[in-house]
Design a protein around this nucleic acid. Structure first.
Length: 828
RNA sequence: GCCCGAGUGGCGGAACAGGCAGACGCACAGGACUUAAAAUCCUGCGAGGGUUAAACCUCGUACCGGUUCGACCCCGGUCUCGGGCACCA
């Protein structure tokens, strides 16, 4: 054995051997129980960053540990490889997106391999290749058949820099989550997925996910935004037309003193055309629409409105109230119209004060009497209904239901549930994405491409212009086509799909990645799903994780999968920070994984990143910390070397001893061994506490050093400690463990070895230290045999000089004994 | 504004179930080895007081209060930081 640990040669050596021997290939034919360990696949930007290193180190520990625990582990990797950066590279450097992407994939795969990750590379999935995206297109067609994919004209989010539309989820504080440009609103005809059909189930089944962080579930719950209320129908004066309004407070309907429409509401133009209000209202609407989304949805912006000249009739009391247009009403939510009840809604109160609209109190609190003239804010709580016809005198909560029932009997209202969640806009005016498999025919309209004509392939020899416009629109060979139905002239859809569509089902494709006949075979997907452990950044809490949940449910209803939820357990890892902030090129605080691996080795990098903080928490990068991890691996190497040098027989020494007959140092070492195995096993199995698992391994190494330092030379025990140390460390530092395993003379790969067990009897101490407390403060300690009964322990402690001294001159009120821990004397 | 999460030595972090606060690592200090240095091995390391040295005492888990024999942990309130949602009717 070499005296020094040389990470570089050692790591490449084992990486090559693992690759040559297909060490991590898995199949569905195992007798063992299956375990599906998945990390979020990366966008192939070109280089691994520390966030990736953290993500994939965590996943690799889980996968390797589960393998050693006797599971048939699926641990795959792939590439989320469609997306805008490839097009930007094409514009900037003239490199075609496909070759740019594939080069990046090759480089990043090399970097991943240098980390020593246990992936079954035969299952690699690459979303930008036709053998994958044809099935993305196929799923689109299935959704289309089911009515889950549809096209509509809508006010959508437009990112001027990316030159494409965005889903709601991709707009953060009014700016594009990708490039930061201020998002504009445009009325466009776009493709949507009907995720709202699943809003209720997406919400309800969150309770079936106890293995998800509450934080993520709460975020999804807020995003879905379920609200219970009623839709009430008001009549527009002088017409037969009805104006439906959604409200959560139908109990306040008798207090309506005006009505407000969203600027985009279709009735606005209809009502003002040709009236004296026409000019001023149009100007107002235009002004509202020029505001950016941020400004429009900001609570800071003053509520403004304008009277339309029209009036509407309250179905509850026949009252005639003015109809306004307001800047604070959203056209996409509810019905795009809101009833104004200033006395009982904060926004309405502010609005009514500003425009001097009447305030009518219809709910009175218990103690005080509200007077519209002196009110300074709305009363939004429950109370007793007043001025509310037959409902006056009722508690408002009870009145709410009765009022809706009554309006329902008049045909003027109904209970209604509304969601904040909107349908998922999936079309993108981009080139580098999966083409939407639809053609437009002059006679037949939108016609889906027949399944046997898939994939609709992306042409690879397109030309890019700096305008950012999709080159597909300039490429007649792509868009000129014939109608699959009538054979007539047709134009192909040139929009492509949001990349989140591609990543919404990749975890299913891993179960059967090479299938050319189907997206995946049912028996294989049934065998592997669900994902037992999913690991990734919390930034996907809403976007990817909700889309994937929606896909799983939709595909279940189509009959393609048997599960309702894709990810049984979710671990959201924290960020890797440098000097307190996220590593980024612009801040210049980026540490390159490649350089760290070259300098210290992948095992060191992995060990440090897992040791420095618990996985969910943010992690501060520390070069000195990395050196500490490196030192530890050297320390393990060295003790192994030293033991094997002076005790060559250690390799063959049988792993047996009589616990009862051992001397003290040996018994202590055996206990340390059992403690370490127990601790590491539980930390990995129950809690993913990698940091404390590693510290337990470090403690065992320290214990071995101390034992040896003091002259201990029990070959059987030392051999056992070294063997188990290597096994415990194998998931964390796979190369070093493999090398030491071989040096210890063991057969096969350490990664196929069985996880060590421990001797519970060895954990037992023959002596325990008991603490003497007086009134809860530690006042002394004493070591007693662990066989001593609790009464004896108490007597022993009470008879200590120290105890007598502390009690002297005081009255003992009572004595509390905690077995194996303490005796507390309460005195006065 | 609303909803989550966090706050522990010089630093990263431990403490599984209310029972010895600070495991493990980093940094620092001392010692051994060495001609010397590095590396390595050993030892110490919350603050203050006390002692030749110990023993020992006081304070200490963001802050204020409570429950308890006993609180980093439970309860009430406050502050700070981080995250999410935010005119959703």
């Amino acid at each position: 054995m070499e005296e020094r640990y040389q990470h570089e040669n050692l790591e490449t050596k084992w990486q090559n051997r693992w690759a040559e021997s297909d060490a991590y290939k898995v199949s569905e034919t195992s007798e063992k129980p299956k375990y599906y360990c998945l990390e979020m696949f990366p966008y192939p930007s070109g280089n691994l960053h520390m966030g990736h290193v953290r993500n994939y180190s965590i996943g690799d520990v889980v996968a390797r540990f589960k393998t050693m625990r006797g599971f048939n582990v699926l641990h795959p990797m792939g590439w989320d490889s469609f997306g805008l950066p490839a097009e930007n590279a094409a514009i900037k450097h003239g490199v075609p997106p496909a070759s740019w992407t594939l080069d990046n994939i090759a480089n990043m795969r090399r970097q991943l391999c240098s980390m020593g990750l246990s992936y079954d590379w035969d299952r690699q999935v690459t979303t930008c290749l036709p053998d994958y995206y044809r099935w993305t297109q196929w799923i689109f067609l299935k959704f289309y058949e089911k009515g889950l994919a549809y096209k509509k004209r809508a006010h959508v989010n437009w990112c001027p820099d990316c030159a494409t539309v965005l889903a709601n989820e991709q707009v953060v504080d009014g700016v594009c989550e990708r490039c930061g440009a201020v998002v504009e609103k445009k009325a466009l005809e776009q493709w949507f997925f009907r995720i709202t059909d699943y809003a209720q189930e997406l919400l309800d089944s969150l309770v079936d996910l106890p293995g998800w962080p509450d934080k993520v579930k709460t975020m999804q719950k807020n995003w879905i935004g379920r609200s219970e209320g009623a839709e009430l129908r008001f009549t527009i004066e002088g017409t037969n037309e009805e104006l439906p309004v959604y409200t959560t407070r139908p109990d306040t309907i008798f207090g309506v003193s005006y009505m407000v429409l969203a600027a985009e509401h279709p009735l606005v133009e209809k009502l003002i055309a040709g009236t004296p209000y026409q000019e001023s209202v149009r100007a107002f609407v235009k002004k509202v629409q020029t505001l950016s989304d941020v400004d429009r949805t900001s609570t800071d912006v003053e509520k403004e409105g304008i009277f339309t000249g029209a009036y509407i009739i309250n179905p509850a009391n026949g009252q005639r109230v003015p109809l306004w247009v307001g800047n604070y009403v959203l056209v996409e939510y509810g019905t795009g119209a809101v009833m104004g009840v200033p006395a009982h809604d904060e926004r309405d109160f502010v609005f009514a004060k500003k425009y001097d609209l009447p305030i009518q109190v219809v709910i009175q609190p218990e103690n005080v009497t509200l007077d519209p003239a002196t009110m300074t804010e709305a009363f939004v709580e429950e109370g007793i209904l007043v001025n509310s016809g037959d409902f006056s005198g009722m508690p408002s909560g009870e009145g709410l239901k009765k009022i809706v029932l009554w309006l329902e009997s008049l045909g003027k209202g109904t209970l209604k549930v509304n969601f904040r969640l909107r349908d998922w806009l999936i079309s993108r005016q981009r080139y580098w994405g999966a083409p939407i498999p639809v053609v437009y025919c002059e006679h037949c309209g939108a016609v889906p491409v027949p399944e046997d004509q898939l994939p609709v392939s992306l042409p690879l020899d397109v030309a890019f212009k700096p305008t950012g416009e999709s080159p597909l629109n300039q490429y007649p060979e792509f868009y000129e086509t014939t109608c699959p139905k009538c054979g007539g002239k047709a134009r192909r859809e040139t929009d492509t799909m949001d990349t989140f569509v591609c990543s919404s089902w990749y975890y299913l494709r891993y179960s059967d990645p090479l299938n050319a006949q189907e997206a995946f075979a049912r028996d294989k997907v049934d065998y592997w799903m669900n994902v037992d452990q999913y690991i990734g950044g919390v930034e996907h809490a809403i976007l990817h994780l909700m889309y994937a949940r929606f896909f799983t449910k939709a595909l279940r209803d189509i009959g393609l999968v048997g599960v309702s939820e894709p990810f049984q357990n979710l671990l959201t890892q924290g960020m890797v920070l440098m000097d307190g902030s996220k590593m980024s090129k612009s801040k210049g605080n980026v540490v390159s994984p490649e350089e760290i691996i070259k300098k210290f080795g992948a095992d060191t990098a992995r060990l440090f990143i897992l040791f420095a903080a618990p996985p969910e928490r943010d992690l501060e990068w520390s070069e000195q910390g990395v050196e500490g991890a490196y030192r530890f691996l050297n320390r393990l190497w060295r003790i192994t070397y030293l033991c094997l040098e002076d005790m060559p027989a250690l390799k063959q020494a049988p792993r047996e001893w009589d616990l009862a007959a051992l001397d003290r140092p040996e018994r202590d070492l055996v206990r340390s061994l059992s403690q370490a195995v127990k601790k590491v096993t539980e930390d990995l199995d129950l809690r993913f506490n990698f940091n404390t698992a590693i510290s337990a391994i470090m403690e065992l190494v320290n214990a071995l050093y101390h034992y040896r330092e003091k002259g201990g030379r029990h070959a059987g025990i030392m051999g056992a400690v070294l063997e188990d140390l290597v096994l415990l460390l194998a998931p964390f530092a796979p190369h070093l463990a493999e090398e030491l395993w071989q040096e210890l003379g063991k057969e096969g790969s350490v990664h196929q070895a069985v996880w060590p067990g421990y001797d519970p009897e060895a954990l037992a101490l023959d002596e325990v230290e008991v603490v003497l407390q007086v009134n809860g403060k530690v006042r002394g300690r004493i070591t007693v045999p662990s066989t001593m009964s609790q009464d004896e322990v108490q007597d022993t402690v009470l008879s200590m000089d120290r105890a007598k001294q502390m009690v002297e001159g005081k009255t003992v009120v009572k004595v509390i004994s905690v077995p194996g821990k303490l005796v507390n004397i309460v005195v006065r």
